[in-house]
Design a protein around this nucleic acid. Structure first.
Lengths: 233, 233
DNA sequence: GGTATTTTGTGATTTTTATCCCAGTTTTTT
DNA sequence: AAAAAACTGGGATAAAAATCACAAAATACC
């Protein structure tokens, strides 16, 4: 678990977010001085629920899950985030606490930006502020959407949603390796492991998806049908 | 349905939001010129899902529900908002479309602020931008919280949550009149009318709450028990 | 390379909640 | 005031999904 920490060179970074792209050289220098870059291995936790939130997190490369243990101490995956992107900053700005945990799903490079400096930049640079605002809006809309789908759809529809999400948003391919276990998939769509397992096999039997035993390869064969199931709920 | 429309006098308004309180006299004048105030009666729709979003909405007085019809064309109440507050602005800023509907639950006074002017103020005044950002963060956190509760709690827990919400957040009293019907309460907690009806009667039988036939008066008798049910899920 | 651990599949059962249905009530409309 | 519409209560039934229990498979670990 040796982590390579190095001082950031934000100015020359090729993975700038929309927000950071609005910063001047001087502002980038300020950010560089107050941020650091850490390499995380697959399965490593980046920060933990209820810990103090001292930094805004930007994923430079890799795949990360945001998750939390809910009221029934049951695990819930809130979002799977692909680089380049900020992790949800809402709870960090408003309260200085992490309301959720973050864990790397693949080897990942993560930037830690000091919250106070981040706030300073919001006040200094209105374009930056606007882009951050848009980013928070996007998070909100995503949550909104997930809330409605989760509430109204049955397990088939929710599982279809998740598979389409991996295909369209994460891998941009109809063939991919599931980056999470069935248990985690269940935590993502709010169902039990067994139900998800059964539902996946149903999809396989109906030739909607194919996969080998270990899910090292999963392919969406009949995407229109999957979309139909997603819509039907 | 005669609506009294009048030009705003934001400067002298006593119900300014945190964000608007940061504006200068000049900026308030700009806002006044580009906003209007409309009176809505109980049950009147303020705007409708999928309509173009040309204005940011501020509730000056009254109670409003944000709702939408979900994928199964089933109605979903997302939030009940008490004045003074902005309605969710995330979808308005990012896309110029209302992703949900808003309907007055009591007679209400609503301010319509032109989106372009709102954006202009975000760029002009960094304190304003920051307060708007915090407001959007709050919306996000609320949704986040609701998502987890909705996903993990059973109907008893969710109904307890809703009753505590009305008592603590909306009326600040253990006695209140439910501003919505049982059907709407079901739409709020994502259950069926019949289940909610049964569950309410269970709570009544167990002396956790009391109410008369028409719910003109509902009182929480055993709040600790309701909180316990909320936590247990 | 063999053992321990984790992950997955599957049947049986139970729990939770939705749905259907209809009869009273209350509220609104005419 | 009568008629229509909307809301509520409650039984019976059905559907969806969780839970339990255990076997099989895959993976990690010495």
């Amino acid at each position: 678990m040796k982590q390579i920490i190095k001082r950031n060179q934000c100015k020359t970074c090729n993975e700038k977010s929309c927000a950071v792209s609005t910063l001047s050289d001087e502002e980038l220098e300020l950010m560089s001085k107050n941020s650091s870059q850490v390499y995380f291995k697959d399965e490593e936790m980046i920060f933990k629920q209820n810990s103090p939130a001292s930094h805004i997190i930007f994923i430079k490369s890799g795949l990360v899950k945001e998750h939390m243990s809910g009221p029934n101490k049951r695990e819930q995956i809130l979002k799977i985030v692909k680089a380049p992107a900020f992790l949800r900053i809402a709870s960090k700005l408003k309260y200085n606490i992490n309301s959720y945990s973050a864990t790397a799903l693949t080897d990942s490079t993560i930037c830690f930006i000091e919250i106070n400096v981040f706030k300073e930049l919001i006040f200094k640079n209105s374009k930056f502020a606007y882009e951050v605002l848009i980013s928070v809006c996007e998070d909100g809309l995503y949550c909104f959407d997930k809330f409605v789908n989760q509430t109204q759809k049955h397990i088939h529809g929710r599982l279809a949603d998740a598979l389409l999400f991996f295909s369209n948003q994460i891998y941009c391919d109809n063939n991919f390796k599931l980056p999470i276990t069935i248990t985690e998939l269940a935590d993502l769509i709010g169902s039990s492991r067994e139900s998800v397992s059964r539902c996946l096999l149903t999809f396989k039997k109906e030739d909607i998806i194919h996969f080998n035993g270990q899910r090292t390869d999963l392919s969406i064969v009949n995407k229109p049908m999957l979309q139909k199931i997603s819509k039907a709920g």
